[in-house]
Design a protein around this nucleic acid. Structure first.
Length: 464
RNA sequence: GUCCCUAUCGUCUAGCCUGGUCCAGGACACUACCCUUUCACGGUAAGAACCGGGGUUCGAAUCCCCGUGGGGACGCCA
């Protein structure tokens, strides 16, 4: 058995979406599992739609997700690697010319309407195609048998000639895809099920070139989320773009973990697992045959689980990176020690990094918003104003050294008035943060410091 | 319309290959309760599925067939 060589072959014609990422991931996982080679090949044969910006997005997205390629084009200064380059189809015209000549010499290519067509072998007949609303010529030939690693044996009987070179002289996907897979010695073609019906064309091409077939594995598709319509997920769907998760500062390892579980599982109940473990267990036969709907809530949960276990330093670094990209975020970063304390308070509370700005806003500004509903609720219960004044009176003498010290001071105050901690907690939180959600009030007091806490209590008491 | 793939809780799925251990297990979501100093986390509990019909068999979620549902392809896009 020759060493595994797989490839991910995107075209830079649009944003990098979740389906592409999953295809890339499964190829990457299979390469790493088998100790094989992961090739990145850019299929930029559509001059009208290709763009350098989208090309960069492919490199950046793969890198962000942690999928390194062993062979591939010169990307972001990495330099071209591999012995079968160039790895951009726009630079491989001479190779395609050679393969075309081979087909022409064998009588398997002909010209029509300025384009070059691949000629199928077999009995020809015409039929009216309801879908295309025109007569088409079909070829009755020996059935093509696809031995699919995921689906088993798939058989297709009908063929049609198809274009391999456009009238503008550029080769078409089916042709270049097969030629490069041959040239680059790809052993396993792992791609979405939407290509399953193309595969018979591709197999005919392999036969035309007289080479042996690679193994095929057609992945189930990722469908729209429940309630978001029918069909496969498209670039236009909410949550479909990798870029979106990157901008929202999702953890790439969480996204990768979620994506790995969309159509594959380790065979037991584990869901959150280290990448190395996924690599160890991943294999083609374990991949599901049916499509899966995308569930952003489950992804969000996975992200939270990963966030929770981040070491303090990494979490603070992630938070700092996030704030640095927020409007006005620089102010929050001004005091590093203060920033760190706040972020660590927030870490166990949030589901994703992009909640941080709103969740911690009151630490960084005095003009934080007041939640009117919460205000009405808190002020409508007991005698919060009295509690507020008792607290303000006690504050100057309070020990702010630790959460525990603040807690016992407030408890002492409460006991003295025949009350409980909770009687002070709600109104103090409202006065100091404007809301009813957040870290413990003692830690907020401590981090804010006595002066700022007292000032906020005073200000609130004045208008309450 | 033609061809191809597919079918277990709302969703992701285990179980199916090698029929009995499954009145079907886990996770997300939802609900309730517990924990609690708010909000989360966490814990416990509840509800929730073998698409339908035929067969094969002592026995079918598991094997076969037919329906139906879902998905894909049918471009001088990839």
């Amino acid at each position: 058995m020759s060493p595994v060589r797989v490839r991910f072959a995107p075209s830079p014609t649009g944003f990098f979406h979740i389906g592409s990422a999953r295809t890339a991931l499964f190829n990457w996982l299979y390469a790493r599992h088998t100790g094989g080679t992961f090739i990145l090949r850019i299929e930029d044969t559509d001059q009208a739609r290709d763009s350098e910006e989208f090309l960069r997005l492919i490199y950046d997205s793969l890198t962000w997700l942690g999928m390194d390629w062993d062979e591939g084009p010169n990307a972001n200064g990495i330099g071209e690697r591999g012995d079968y380059g160039p790895y951009r189809q726009s630079q491989r015209a001479d190779v395609y010319k050679l393969y075309l000549e081979q087909l022409q010499n064998a009588g398997r290519a002909y010209e029509k309407d300025g384009a070059i067509w691949f000629k199928q072998l077999g009995e020809r007949y015409t039929v009216f195609d309801e879908h295309r609303k025109k007569e088409v010529e079909k070829v009755k030939s020996d059935p093509v048998v696809i031995d699919d690693k995921i689906r088993g044996r798939v058989e297709r009987a009908e063929d049609e000639d198809f274009v391999i070179f456009r009238s503008d002289g550029n080769p078409v996907f089916h042709f270049v895809n097969v030629v490069d897979d041959i040239e680059m010695k790809v052993t396993h073609i792992i791609r979405g099920e939407d290509h399953l019906s193309n595969t018979s064309k591709h197999i005919r091409l392999y036969e035309g070139f007289g080479v042996t077939l690679p193994a095929f594995a057609h992945l189930p598709l990722i469908l729209k989320s429940p309630g978001m319509g029918q069909g496969k997920m498209s670039k236009r769907d909410k949550g479909a773009l990798i870029e979106e998760y990157r901008q929202r500062h999702f953890l790439p390892e969480a996204l990768v973990n979620y994506l790995a579980l969309l159509g594959w599982n380790p065979g037991d109940d584990r869901e959150k697992m280290p990448l190395a473990e996924t690599v160890r267990l991943f294999d083609l036969p374990a991949i599901n045959q049916s499509n899966a709907k995308f569930d952003s809530k489950k992804l969000a949960h996975m992200n939270m689980v990963y966030l929770l276990e981040q070491p303090a330093d990494r979490f603070v670094a992630l938070a700092a990176d996030y704030f640095s990209k927020q409007p006005g975020g620089a102010a929050a970063l001004a005091d590093g020690a203060y920033f760190r304390e706040i972020m660590l308070l927030a870490q166990p509370k949030i589901k994703s990094i992009d909640e941080l700005a709103a969740y911690t806003a009151y630490f960084f500004a005095e003009d934080f918003p007041m939640d009117e509903k919460v205000r009405a609720k808190v002020l409508g219960k007991g005698d919060p104003k009295a509690r507020l004044h008792e607290l303000m009176a006690a504050l100057p003498a309070m020990d702010f050294a630790s959460d525990a010290a603040i807690e016992s001071a407030i408890k002492l105050l409460a006991e003295g008035n025949g009350l409980g901690f909770g009687d002070y907690q709600a109104v103090a939180r409202l006065a100091v943060t404007g809301t009813n959600a957040g870290p413990s009030i003692t830690s907020i007091f401590r981090v804010l410091g006595r002066d700022r806490t007292l000032a906020r209590l005073l200000r609130f008491a004045a208008v309450a």
